[in-house]
Nucleic acid binder design. Structure first.
Lengths: 225, 225, 225, 225
DNA sequence: CATGAATGAGTCTTCATTCAT
DNA sequence: GATGAATGAAGACTCATTCAT
């Protein structure tokens, strides 16, 4: 979890974004939690550019100074909040991928969609608020790292499929994952036709299912029959 | 073109973002062009938060004062640049959709992918730079409007298909369009497996083609012939 | 003049201290002048640590923003004020040194003392205020550079003496210059016995005269007589 | 020792700088010692403005709270460190002066130079680090007080000279002491010609010796013998 | 019309100091 | 006594916007 925040394998630029203290103690955990929540709220109510450290601290019920005891600067705070969010999604995807190794492709598609949607829509406000953060310099890198993690898991899952082989599983995984992102964002931001939300999961399962079936190279034993 | 910037059907907040003068004169057009280019460059080199009016004007070879002759404020400038970008894509998609009305779904899928990719990758730097702008408050609205436009066109195209009927063409169009967004962004930001770019168009065509085929309700009369 | 502010032969750290615009226009000159005066005043009334950019700007009758149009940061402002002060002294010393080349050592001693004192005591408040600045990181470097310049001039003067030769003129020059610094500072800061000021120039001339005489290696023609 | 820190004859401003407790216990002494050392180190590595109480405490291996058990505020800590440093020098000078009472001026000059140099160069890092502190408001007063003490001792020594009388021994003492300050500082800060350090003591002895000789009024009775 | 200096509110960030544990 | 988290005032610096020239 949150493995992309380890100091090793970290670019110098990214090093400055590391939180200052680990929330080991109960009080610290609560404080960090409050900051995360407050950040999401301010992001939602005010937007990224007006999401200032002062405002976040105020909404979290503490002084700016306290915020800076946990994060070395504003970007680190935003990065941490984004990282936590992304990590939740990655973990869910990861878990599902491992669970469906060796299964049939159709089950993989359905499970991947379900897991991704459940994670992403668990707290829609949070998901929506963080799109702006993900668009900024530091955010994009974080997204990249987490996506890489998920793509690796999906790739491994695809390669283990009982009923299919893929010419380039990594590419297929990349398409599969990223194809989910756009429709989900559209739903979160409300840019969809009326009644669309209800059909989202079904449509995405259809999308991924069809794509994976179309991408597969039938295994010899299947070909024989 | 740029129809979403007309004053009618514009929220009060959005009204402040309208450019001050229309580029009717040759000089104005050139100036606006220079500002757009400069904005992209500053966005790329400095990031959204350091993309200041002074810096943009300087890079465009004019004074800040002149910039303010064309745009009432910074947000209007950014909105205009994003709007122009999005409009280019919407126009391309629109054109293709009209061209393929009445054709077979497979051709629609291929054409849609090709048009979207060509438009989005024409100036990759520009596309990439604008993700941050699109993530901000005003940007998201713009994106929403343009997506709605494109979805309407795609819906119309789908409904005209010679070889298929769709249960909910609008929903299918929304999925189809938004499914392209994620993978393209991943490519633009370099977050893809090596060699992926070369396969992008083929994979997306496969994705969309498979999805549209899977979504269709075969027309009885067509099936008989 | 102010040659130590040229960009070539400047350490990277020192580069950040360069003023932003050259005061070429009349208004700029006045502005810069006002800032220098205000800085000295704030330094005197409040001390170095309370000499803030806001206070300086306020006393100079302008906004902080304006200050930052001329200096990239607080240190640059302080460095510029110190540099201007030191340059005045160095120029005076330089001028005197050139004037007394080829003369007798005693005249050199007297002239050096007179020039240094005149320059340093022209504006005692300024001189006193800048000691704190000279003690800080950037200030020490500036002092070093200006001292080097003066020592070079003094060395050249000593080597041209009509009635003496010096074993190590550079070392003698360094001692001579630096020996003046302490007593003058003591006077400026009021840490001297009553009635001392009146005797300062005489005593310093005595000090330097005696030292230079004691340091010289008599020239052969003198030895012959 | 540290007599200038006694409460009597102390201005109200200076009263706030007094340490909170005297280091009577062994532990206190060690703690104070650690704080002094840590202060010098932080001063050297970070500069005066970044020499914070937290950093000093940390480097001294204790909490900020503990630091405040020993010093009422940051300025008191800095003042104490400077005072201790200056006191060491003053004591050395004082001792030497008493030792050479009644002796010949030449011996006085040599001894004074030797004592001052030995004291000031014992820990060059410390001496150098404290120049910034000495330049600030409180520091200058401390320096003034210690210089006054040393001048008094030197004056007494000069007045006791076996082979000379001085017109104004106090003034001569002031010049003599302060003339040493500049060259020593130049050496400590490395602003000297190459190879200068080796000649420092000799040159300073020459400087002071020549000056004292030149300043003296030969005693008739001595001259006769 | 263009220019770019001036403005000053608003950010981020630091740090001396306190005090509950 | 020791600790170190919390505080919030204060400082450096930026930048959108205006307007005199």
């Amino acid at each position: 979890m949150l493995q992309f925040l380890n100091s090793h394998s970290m670019t110098p630029a990214a090093a400055a974004l590391k939180p200052r203290k680990s929330p080991v103690q109960a009080r610290s955990t609560a404080t960090v939690e409050a900051l995360h929540t407050a950040t999401i709220q301010v992001l939602t109510r005010e937007g990224l550019s007006r999401c200032t450290t002062t405002r976040v601290a105020q909404r979290a019920g503490m002084s700016v100074g306290s915020l800076y005891q946990y994060y070395p600067n504003r970007d680190a705070l935003l990065a941490a909040v984004l990282a936590k969010h992304l990590d939740g999604i990655a973990s869910a995807v990861e878990h599902t991928c491992r669970e469906h190794r060796g299964g049939p492709v159709s089950a993989m598609a359905a499970a991947l969609v379900a897991a991704f949607l459940a994670a992403k829509l668990r707290d829609p406000g949070e998901s929506k608020a963080l799109y702006a953060v993900a668009g900024e310099r530091g955010g994009a890198e974080l997204v990249a790292r987490v996506h890489a993690r998920m793509e690796a898991e999906i790739t491994a899952m695809l390669e283990s499929a009982a009923d299919a082989r893929f010419d380039d599983a990594a590419a297929t995984a990349a398409i599969a994952l990223n194809a989910l992102v756009g429709p989900v964002r559209a739903v979160l931001e409300g840019n969809v036709p009326p009644g669309f939300e209800a059909r989202l999961e079904g449509q995405l399962a259809l999308l991924l299912g069809a794509y994976l079936q179309a991408s597969r190279i039938p295994r010899r034993e299947h070909a024989r029959r």
